[in-house]
Nucleic acid binder design. Structure first.
Length: 264
DNA sequence: TCCCAGGCAAGGC
DNA sequence: GCCTTGCATGGG
């Protein structure tokens, strides 16, 4: 145990299971007594110390303090959301969800893989891409060709991965400028420049990789949620607009509570 | 066996 | 612009 580098966090507003299993990251393992999590080339271990506290063991305290968004007050967020449609129920089920601050590059690649795919398979493909448990840098990933991605089971996404990896490695795409754009403009920038990134994947990248809350990823589960709320059906684009109108500047948070609640 | 999964690109209109 | 179609692969 690396006592000096442990982060101790209040368990109020942070339930490890909710935060890790709500579909925002893919590189974690439930090891029964603890969870193991990897981000880029870093690793941490999380477990409940007691009824009120969580321990995060790592070799980079600062990185994981930021990663777990520990400076944000989730009590206030949940308080402001709880009167909106389906939120009381969803928050009560996923009360310990936090939105992680993940690497934009790792998030872009991971969510291209996620399209029309199931979570166990997404996890397997990402694991195969990693080198000694570290997520490859853009220049490393760009050395793999389409055939490689196909061989590890990426299916028709192999072409998207090869294309996007190369674009990012060659800096034909400005991964940093997105921080300065609002959700709408950032979404357009991603969709129109990266193969394999459509409106939904772009919103996931913006929510999990850039911590933008004025987005609303609409996937198959959120489509069901939409019908629960509005008792009608429409296309994903219209759903997204209406959901952002409904949940406002807290849309990103709301979406995660709703997704976790619906998916179970 | 069949349907589904954190949808997308491409082509037709 | 919007709508439809084809798509790799494994889980349930």
């Amino acid at each position: 145990m690396i006592t000096d580098n442990n982060i101790i966090v209040e368990r109020k507003d942070f339930e490890i299971k909710h935060t890790l299993e709500c579909g925002q990251l893919f590189r974690y393992k439930d090891c029964n007594t603890h969870y193991e999590l990897r981000s880029l080339d870093k690793k941490c271990i999380l477990y409940n110390k007691n009824k009120n506290e969580i321990v995060i063991e790592s070799e980079d305290k600062n990185y994981f303090h930021n990663y777990f968004d520990l400076d944000t007050d989730y009590s206030e967020i949940k308080h402001n959301l709880k009167s909106l449609p389906l939120m009381a129920e969803s928050i009560s089920n996923g009360y310990g969800i936090r939105i992680l601050r993940q690497s934009p590059f790792e998030t872009i690649i991971s969510f291209i893989i996620s399209a029309n795919n199931n979570i166990p398979r997404i996890q397997k493909i990402i694991e195969k891409i990693c080198i000694n448990d570290a997520f490859p840098a853009p220049s490393e990933l760009a050395q793999y060709n389409e055939q490689y991605f196909s061989d590890i089971g990426a299916g028709y996404r192999a072409r998207y991965l090869a294309s996007t990896a190369k674009k990012l490695a060659d800096k034909e795409f400005d991964i940093d400028i997105i921080h300065q754009l609002n959700g709408m403009d950032a979404n357009k920038y991603l969709c129109s420049n990266l193969l394999g990134v459509g409106e939904k994947v772009a919103d996931c990248i913006l929510l999990f990789g850039y911590h933008k809350m004025d987005v609303f990823p609409v996937d198959t589960w959120i489509k069901k949620v939409y019908q629960d709320i509005f008792k009608t059906n429409t296309n994903a684009k219209a759903m997204r607009k209406q959901l952002i109108d409904t949940y406002g500047e807290l849309s990103g948070y709301a979406q995660q509570y709703l997704f976790y609640n619906k998916r179970g």
